[in-house]
Amino acid sequence: MTTFQTVLRTANLDDLDAITDLHTQARTAYYQAGGLSVSELVSSEARSRRREAWMRALRADAKTVVCAIGGGEVVGTLAMGPPLEADVDAATVGQLYQIHVRPSRWGQGVGGRLHTAFVQFLRDGSLATGLLEAWEGNSRAQGFYARHGWKPDGHHRPGPGNASYVRLCLDLDPAP
């Protein structure tokens, strides 16, 4: 296995197309592995919607987007910020909106580095809990988050392919 040095940095609008393409590749890989058709995932309309969503995230003051750079290209991305649901206490909870890693870099530690950046985001904000949603058909993500201590909290919402999005929580131990 080839090991690449990966550097994390705050993303900016110059990264928009690279992030959108990476998201499309990762999303296609995990939804296809979960049994969904690829055609909707790679359509120009779907790509345009993803690009617009990333542009909003990059411009939002309350959200943070991080890029993992390896071999001179964006190989991973992380988006995080306050909880999206109004009934969740933003004074104690931060939300991991998305982690995506280029499929050719899966298993090389990029996702782990991005996850560590999210945990640091929680600690920097004195937030005790992380919150995220993962598609239950994405067994790779489910395993990744379980290995990092995330646990389902019982909330679900409908997702594609008759599979739900499962909400997961990470309770941080107090910092030493």
Rank of each mutant, 00 (worst) to 15 (best):
M1H: 03
T3P: 01
F4S: 00
Q5R: 13
T6M: 08
L8F: 14
L8Y: 14
N12Y: 06
D14G: 07
L16A: 00
I19P: 06
H23S: 01
T24N: 04
Q25W: 14
R27D: 02
A29P: 07
A29M: 12
Y30K: 07
Y30M: 11
A33G: 11
L36N: 11
L36R: 09
S37V: 08
S37G: 13
L41S: 02
V42Y: 03
S43G: 09
S43Q: 12
S44L: 04
E45N: 11
E45Q: 11
A46S: 03
R47S: 02
R47N: 02
S48N: 07
R51T: 15
E52D: 04
A53R: 05
A53I: 06
W54L: 13
M55E: 14
M55L: 15
A57I: 01
A57V: 04
A57Q: 02
L58C: 10
L58H: 08
L58P: 08
D61L: 15
A62R: 08
K63V: 06
T64P: 12
C67A: 01
C67S: 04
I69F: 00
G70Q: 08
E73L: 10
V74A: 13
V74S: 12
V74D: 09
V75E: 00
L78P: 08
P82Y: 13
P82H: 05
L84Q: 11
E85V: 14
A86G: 15
D89P: 12
T92Q: 12
G94W: 08
Q95V: 14
Q95A: 11
Y97G: 06
Q98M: 05
H100K: 05
H100Y: 02
H100N: 04
P103M: 07
S104Q: 11
G109W: 00
G109R: 04
G111R: 09
R113G: 00
H115M: 03
T116Q: 10
F118K: 06
F118V: 10
Q120L: 03
L122V: 04
G125W: 11
S126C: 07
S126L: 10
S126M: 11
L127I: 13
L127T: 12
T129L: 02
T129P: 00
G130E: 07
L131R: 01
L132W: 09
E133S: 01
A134D: 00
W135D: 00
W135E: 01
G137E: 09
N138I: 14
N138P: 01
S139K: 00
A141F: 02
Q142A: 10
G143K: 03
Y145D: 14
Y145W: 15
Y145V: 15
W150Y: 09
K151G: 08
H155G: 02
H156C: 08
R157A: 09
R157K: 09
P158S: 04
G159Y: 15
N162L: 12
S164V: 12
R167P: 07
R167L: 09
L170N: 01
P174F: 13
A175L: 04
P176R: 01
P176G: 03
